[in-house]
C-alpha cells in the first residue's frame, strides 16, 4: 500500500512538468484546429459533426470538461449562444470566461459576412453580429489557426515556437491547396443550401449561392417557398447540400423536381480530425460542389 502510494506520488511528480494545455473545442472543426496547432494538448470536443451547434443544450459533461480547461475554442458570433455561456458560467472556471485569455472565438479573429442585418426576428433566428459559420472557409480558418497559435503561445510560453510553427504549417498547407480548389470550383453552377451555413466557403471560391431552402433562419420552409425556388431554378444546374441534422425531406423534393444531385455534408469534419482531417473535409465539400457540372 505504502509503495503504491509512493509510486503514485512519484508518478505525479514526474507527470507534473509535462502538463499540456487542457483545451475544450465546441465543434470538431475547432478541434481540428487545436490538434493542428497543439498536437500534444489535452482536447475535449463538445459536439459531434452530426449535431446542430446552435441547438445544443448545456450538459453536465460539458461543464465538467470546462471546469479544468485552460482554453475554450469556440466558433463564436453567437453560434453557441444557447449553451456555451450557461455551461461556462456553471463550470466555475474564471480563466475561460469571455474577455479572458482562456476564451477564444474564431469569429472574433476574422471579418464576418452577413453582419449588420436588422435585429428583427420576423426574419427568423437572426444574428446581426454576423454569420458565425466561418469554419468552412479554409483561408479564414488558416488565419484563425495563426491567431490560435499566438493565443496558445501566450498561455504556454514554453511551447510558443511550436504552436506558431504548427499554425504556419497549416496555413501553408491551406495556401497550397487553394489554387487547386479554386480551379475545380471555377465556373461551378452554384449551390442551394438549407441554411446560410456554408456561405463562407461559397464566397471564398466565388460559387453562387442559388438559394436557401429555409426562407428565414431557424424556420422550416413553407411549400410555397419551395415552389418559388423550384420555379426560379428550373432549367439551371446546381447541387443541393444540407447538413445531417437538417430535415432531408425538402432538399430531396427540390432535388427531384430540379433533377439535381443532393448531398448531405456535415459542417464539421469527424470528431477526431486534425489539420489534415480538416483539409479532407473541405475537399469533400469542394468535390460535392464541383460535381454539379
Amino acid at each position: 500500500m505504502k509503495r503504491c502510494f509512493m509510486g503514485a506520488l512519484a508518478w505525479l511528480l514526474l507527470a507534473a512538468p509535462v502538463l499540456a494545455l487542457d483545451v475544450v473545442a465546441t465543434s470538431p472543426s475547432m478541434g481540428a484546429l487545436v490538434r493542428a496547432v497543439a498536437p500534444d494538448a489535452t482536447l475535449t470536443v463538445l459536439a459531434g459533426p452530426d449535431r446542430d451547434l446552435h441547438a445544443l443544450q448545456a450538459k453536465p459533461s460539458m461543464i465538467s470538461a470546462l471546469r479544468g480547461a485552460d482554453l475554450i475554442v469556440a466558433v463564436g458570433a453567437e453560434l453557441e449562444v444557447g449553451w456555451l455561456p450557461a455551461a461556462s458560467a456553471s463550470a466555475a472556471n474564471p480563466a475561460i470566461l469571455p474577455g479572458r485569455e482562456g476564451y477564444f472565438e474564431a469569429a472574433a479573429q476574422v471579418p464576418l459576412l452577413d453582419a449588420g442585418g436588422a435585429a428583427d426576428r420576423a426574419m427568423g433566428d437572426v444574428h446581426p453580429a454576423g454569420n458565425p459559420h466561418v469554419d468552412l472557409d479554409p483561408v479564414r480558418m488558416a488565419q484563425v489557426a495563426e491567431a490560435l497559435g499566438e493565443r496558445m503561445a501566450r498561455l504556454d510560453p514554453g511551447n510558443a515556437a511550436s504552436y506558431r510553427n504548427n499554425a504556419e504549417r497549416l496555413s501553408a498547407a491551406v495556401a497550397e491547396r487553394v489554387p487547386d480548389w479554386q480551379g475545380r470550383l471555377a465556373g461551378a453552377p452554384g449551390v442551394v443550401l438549407y441554411h446560410r451555413d456554408a456561405v463562407y466557403l461559397l464566397d471564398r471560391f466565388d460559387v453562387p449561392l442559388l438559394g436557401t431552402i429555409e426562407a428565414v433562419p431557424g424556420v422550416p420552409p413553407s411549400g410555397r417557398h419551395l415552389r418559388e425556388l423550384t420555379a426560379k431554378l428550373r432549367g439551371q444546374d446546381g447541387v443541393i447540400i444540407h447538413a445531417p441534422y437538417q430535415s432531408p425531406k425538402a432538399p430531396q423534393k427540390l432535388a427531384r423536381d430540379l433533377g439535381w444531385p443532393v448531398a448531405t455534408l456535415p459542417l464539421s469534419p469527424p470528431v477526431d480530425a486534425d489539420g489534415d482531417g480538416y483539409l479532407r473535409h473541405i475537399e469533400r465539400w469542394v468535390a460535392a460542389i464541383a460535381a454539379a457540372r
Binding site: A77, P98, G99, E101, A107, A115, G117, V126, A147
Partner: peptide
C-alpha cells in the same frame, strides 16, 4: 439580409466585428 451585408462587408461590418477584441465574444 445579404444585401445589407454586401454594402457593409467592405468597410464597417468586418471592422465592427473585429472591434470586439480578441478575447471577447462577438455578440
Amino acid at each position: 439580409r445579404v444585401l445589407r451585408a454586401q454594402s457593409q462587408a467592405a468597410a464597417p461590418a468586418p471592422a465592427g466585428s473585429r472591434s470586439a477584441g480578441l478575447f471577447d465574444a462577438v455578440t
